[in-house]
Design a protein around this nucleic acid. Structure first.
Length: 133
DNA sequence: ATCGTGACTGGGA
DNA sequence: ATCCCAGCCACGA
């Protein structure tokens, strides 16, 4: 559906006009994730006040490899290393985490119970979905 | 300039 | 339970 795309584009332009780069802010937050801890795309997006932009966070990190940003500490909400494919070798990301003492579960995901790092931003429990029906 | 899509996520059907 | 959709931002074609 094109309408959806158009709406997104318009929103994007407006955001850029009034705010600073979401991209840069996201990377800044990632830098705050402590050694041995991991966070999620959604957590970062939420901390930035745009919890629906989780996807964008990953995109931002894409251009952050080979920088001081610890991109390997960002996993998806389940603790899966979805960004591993961007680390050259499929196991690279996991190795980086293990080198920091991060433990994994049997299914290969990060043990979020132990290592999840939450940002100070208060969690918003308000619903964001449209009412519908 | 427009259009599609992505390292996501939660809610609806 | 599974599958689909909508919403955010940035960037390449």
């Amino acid at each position: 559906m094109k309408k959806r795309k158009q709406v997104e584009q318009i929103a994007s332009v407006e955001r850029q006009h009034k705010k600073k780069s979401f991209h840069d802010k996201a990377l800044e937050l990632v830098r705050r994730v402590p050694f041995g801890k991991v966070t999620t795309y959604g957590a970062i997006a939420e901390a930035l006040g745009a919890k629906l932009s989780a996807r964008m966070v990953g995109y931002a990190l894409h251009s952050a490899v080979n920088t001081d940003v610890p991109a390997h500490r960002v996993v998806n909400r389940f603790g899966a290393l979805t960004g591993a494919i961007h680390f050259g070798h499929p196991d690279r990301m996991r190795q980086l985490l293990q080198a920091e003492g991060v433990s994994f579960l049997a299914d290969g995901t990060v043990d979020m119970e132990k290592h999840f790092y939450a940002f100070r931003k208060a969690p918003q429990t308000a619903k964001r979905r449209k009412p519908l029906t």
